[in-house]
């Protein structure tokens, strides 16, 4: 029996309110007509209009999306391979070092990751720009991907692979026809996570970026260091709206595919 007690209900309601109220306030203020952010001057969409003309912000947003797309894809590939190596290959030489290198970046302060990356690029005298940010983000994100995919692989029912081999499928075909389709949801989730991590990152990108590769967080950060600005409220609102829609679509898609799976159960 699960009972919802008053204490539990309060904890949930207050917790959710705490998480969402600041975002809601931010969204409301982005429609404030007044230049002074704190003074309510009526509803207006002027900050959004102004944004459309701000090529620096739009350019930074596009740059962020490009970096996120490329690094998420690379990180998903490398992270999935790493997860396979960790879960499926048993003991191999250097496994401990490998596992440590997967887990360490998860808790490594971003400042240090960024600093060490930058020092590497300086040491091998690489010009910093788009690709250095991509490499840095890939390195950080692939570890998260590895952990997500590893979790799915670890509770993967091995007898399914054995059944495929028993029925005549060689190892590679077994992987492609049985294992891959079944871990695909985890891989997709990992890609989304990697994309979000890249889009979110300020510190590592600040260290590894170069001229012409300003990402959106770097841009926003340089704007808000000195205080709140109404245009930035608008940028943030758009960002939140995009993320909200993406998550909604993703959950609807999984609902739909799930529903297609269950609908047949009702048939006689």
């Amino acid at each position: 029996m699960r009972r919802v007690t008053w204490f539990n209900l309060c904890a949930i309601v207050l917790g959710i309110a705490f998480l969402y109220l600041p975002i809601v306030i931010l969204v409301i203020y982005s429609f404030n007509a007044s230049r002074l952010v704190a003074v309510w001057g009526g509803w207006s969409t002027q900050w959004y209009a102004q944004l459309a003309g701000d090529t620096a912000i739009v350019g930074a947003a596009l740059m962020s999306l490009r970096v996120a797309f490329v690094s998420a894809s690379l990180a998903t590939l490398l992270g999935t391979l790493a997860a396979l190596a960790l879960v499926r290959f048993g003991r191999f030489r250097g496994r401990l070092l490998f596992a440590s290198m997967i887990y360490a970046p998860l808790v490594m302060p971003e400042v240090i990751t960024g600093l060490s990356m930058l020092l590497l690029f300086v040491a091998i005298s690489v010009d910093r720009g788009f690709w250095t940010v991509v490499i840095a983000h890939t390195t950080m994100a692939m570890c998260f991907v590895a952990v997500v995919v590893q979790a799915r692989l670890a509770d993967f029912d091995m007898s399914l692979e054995e059944a495929a081999m028993d029925l005549g499928a060689p190892p590679l075909r077994t992987f492609l026809t049985v294992t891959l389709p079944l871990i695909l949801p985890a891989i997709v989730a990992a890609w989304m996570l990697a994309f979000a991590l890249s889009l979110d990152d300020l510190v590592i990108a600040s260290f590894t970026t170069g001229p012409g590769a300003t990402t959106l967080p770097i841009r926003i950060y340089s704007e808000i260091r000195l205080g709140v600005k109404p245009e930035i409220n608008a940028v943030c609102t758009i960002f939140i709206a995009v993320v909200g829609i993406a998550v909604l679509v993703a959950s609807l898609l999984t609902k739909l595919t799930g529903a297609r799976g269950t609908s047949a159960r009702i048939e006689p």
Binding site: S159, L160, E162, A163, D166, L182
Partner: peptide, 13 residues
């Protein structure tokens, strides 16, 4: 030689 698994190991997808 083929095997029928205790868990059946039917491919869920």
């Amino acid at each position: 030689v083929n095997m029928m698994f205790q868990s059946y190991a039917l491919f869920p997808h």
